[in-house]
């Protein structure tokens, strides 16, 4: 499948990655090449095959739904680019 510039723009937006308008055609070409490679999968007969959800047959472990950790806001905020008054700070979200 060939990817057009409009699709490339939409995908970049969904992925929240800023792509300059001038770079969209080349990005679309790269996507087309990679998707062309992936399209080989259409040759495979997958009728009646279950999509894999877990590569090992074991059941995932469960734990009690209780608080096991906490009370360390300073450690949680330590690496934040902008933390104020015990919170992560971001640009204004609502007017």
């Amino acid at each position: 499948m060939s990817i057009d510039t409009e699709t490339a723009r939409r995908v970049a937006k969904l992925a929240r990655i800023k792509v300059e308008e001038a770079d969209l055609p080349e990005l679309a070409n790269e996507f087309s090449a990679i998707l062309g490679f992936i399209e080989q999968l259409n040759e495979v007969d997958v009728d009646g095959v279950e999509p894999m959800t877990s590569v090992t047959p074991q059941r995932l472990k469960r734990r009690e739904d209780v608080v096991t950790d906490g009370d360390q806001p300073q450690a949680v905020l330590k690496n934040a680019p902008d933390a104020r008054e015990g919170f992560f700070a971001v640009p204004k979200v609502v007017e």
Binding site: L41, V44, V46, V49, P51
Partner: peptide
């Protein structure tokens, strides 16, 4: 078309 098909092929590979 892509993701589920790939997961089915993964089952066949296993």
């Amino acid at each position: 078309a892509y993701y589920n098909r790939a997961r089915k092929v993964r089952t066949l590979i296993k």
